[in-house]
């Protein structure tokens, strides 16, 4: 394990140190992180980084297999265009997490901001998954093309909604699972509730269990039957706007 103290270090110097450190150790610990961008960008398999503090925007951008565990909260654009790997956030998360994410998993203990999972996509064996313990802001899964978003809605107050407005607007692939569902007026025009299948339930069980393990929580009260699933009404709603291919 190599420990790097990030206090007052510019993001370029910090990322250079991480690049250098992974040549000799696959386990890295970063302390006193505060706003440095792009940590974990492009890093590949078998590398594990524990991050203490508040990593900056675009953490794990283009990440390709590494595992990041953040003891703190994440800012905007976490896992931007991430390919593979895993991120565990012991806190909350800003806007646009999972922006154009193509594979891998994100687990967020608390809530997430606006436009989470915007334009997520899947390809063959690559299927991105975002699991959120709390609620999400507006435009969850906007233009979503693949993968899955799971919201557990844990610990919400009476007035809090599990999603904001315009959930799944422009969605044309993938699935959104919301514990207890969301209000019809919060759902975009391009998606609708569909029936949970047995394979959905298995999938949910697996990820709820993983969430409980990562955050050391007892989730026996969370019943997979209470999830509602939302999927796209049309697989290719914009084809008439462009050349057919």
């Amino acid at each position: 394990m190599i420990t790097i103290n990030a206090k007052n270090i510019h993001y370029r110097a910090l990322n250079d140190s991480i690049d250098k450190a992974v040549r000799t150790s696959k386990n890295i610990k970063l302390t006193d992180v505060c706003g440095q961008r792009y940590i974990g960008r492009g890093l590949d398999e078998n590398i594990k980084i524990k991050i203490y503090g508040t990593p900056g925007n675009d953490t794990a951008a283009y990440m390709d297999g590494a595992e990041l565990e953040i003891f703190g909260s994440a800012q905007d654009a976490l896992a931007n265009t991430m390919n593979r790997g895993k991120i565990i956030v012991h806190g909350h998360c800003g806007d646009t997490a999972g922006y154009a994410m193509r594979g891998g998993e994100i687990y967020v203990e608390g809530s997430v901001g606006y436009r989470v999972g915007i334009h997520m996509k899947e390809y063959r064996d690559l299927k991105p998954v975002i699991v959120v313990g709390g609620a999400a802001g507006d435009f969850l899964g906007e233009y979503m093309a693949g993968g899955a978003i799971i919201l557990l809605g844990l610990g919400l107050s009476k007035n809090e909604r599990i999603t904001g407005r315009f959930c799944a607007t422009g969605m044309h692939g993938g699935a959104i699972y919301l514990y207890g569902g969301t209000d019809a007026f919060n759902l975009g025009k391009e998606a609708a509730e569909v029936k949970l299948t047995n394979s959905d339930k298995e999938f949910l069980k697996k990820h709820v269990k993983a969430y409980a393990k990562h955050f050391n929580k007892n989730l026996s009260a969370v019943k997979v039957n209470n999830f509602k699933k939302y999927a796209a009404l049309n697989k290719n709603p914009y084809e008439n706007m462009y050349c057919k291919n």
């Binding site: 505060c34 706003g35 909350h92 802001g137």
Partner: peptide, 21 residues
């Protein structure tokens, strides 16, 4: 604009939130 700019001067706030639009 960023949470880290708050935490750099106030590392342990009583409460942190993202105001809605």
């Amino acid at each position: 604009s960023e949470e880290s700019s708050i935490r750099v001067i106030c590392p342990e706030p009583d409460k942190v939130w993202s105001p809605k639009g």
